[in-house]
Design a protein around this nucleic acid. Structure first.
Length: 228
DNA sequence: GAGTGATCATAA
DNA sequence: TTATGATCACTC
């Protein structure tokens, strides 16, 4: 039986990180969890972020909820993405919280969204619902940096959405806005509230929101990588 | 069935 | 409460 070593240490180089990631390809989540003596949930009704956290541990990401890339020294963000039999994404991809206050002067170039996804290590996983979590298989991880075209696609949506926020129209933003980047609620439940800019520039309370990459966006980079 | 809005676990 | 990791599940 092949031995896999998964140090809980931050990788020192991109090459080392990629080398670790490549050894994961072909493993099921169950196999990977067993190696690390971690229990696999029967479903993700409760532990929705389990897969991402498993991969973080296996690749040596710095744990925690810090607002920076998973591999800060390498400038690389880790994202697992569930795919179907055609390598098409099954879910949108959360990027970061949407700023709802003090948004004047924020530019795309220095935005949270752009910063977060400058370099992403995508770990596609067969996430078909009919496959139990422990049998879901990890596909080939790959490193991605937005092309100038992709950067532009996201910038257009981001600017439209941020303008609405700055003008006090957060309550009018729905997930239907944005062709590639959307804004949706992001909270423990509907009771969570945060400050935002209201219609007349006053402070209001609203549900916290997050930026998400639509499947139309992530499917492009998956197709590019897999040569589809 | 797809997609939007809602929700779950955890850390600090 | 904000932020990390996301998927669930109801409505259209």
């Amino acid at each position: 039986m092949k031995q896999y070593i998964f140090p809980n240490q931050e990788p020192k180089s991109t090459a080392q990180l990629m080398s670790r990631a490549e050894t994961l390809a072909g493993l099921t989540l169950g196999e990977l969890a067993d190696i690390n003596k971690i229990k696999v949930p029967v479903n993700f009704k409760r532990e929705k972020g389990w897969t991402g956290q498993l991969l973080e541990r296996c690749l040596g990401a710095t744990a925690g909820s810090k607002s920076e890339q998973d591999f800060a020294k390498l400038g690389i963000e880790l994202k697992t993405i569930p795919i179907d039999e055609n390598c098409f994404p099954l879910e949108t991809t959360y990027v970061c919280y949407a700023p709802l206050l003090d948004v004047a002067g924020i530019e795309w170039r220095s935005s949270n969204v752009r910063n977060k996804i400058q370099q992403v290590l995508w770990v596609p996983i067969d996430g078909r619902r009919e496959i139990p979590p422990r049998d879901r298989r990890i596909a080939t991880p790959f490193l991605w940096t937005p092309s100038s075209e992709q950067d532009h696609q996201l910038r257009m949506d981001w600017e439209e959405l941020m303008e609405m926020i700055s003008l006090g129209n957060i309550e009018n933003i729905t997930a239907k806005h944005g062709q590639y980047l959307q804004i949706r609620p992001k909270a423990a439940d509907g009771s969570a509230l945060t400050d935002a800019i209201g219609k007349n520039g006053q402070k209001i309370q609203t549900r916290p929101r997050g930026f998400y990459l639509r499947k139309e966006f992530t499917s492009q980079l998956l197709a590019d990588y897999f040569g589809l």
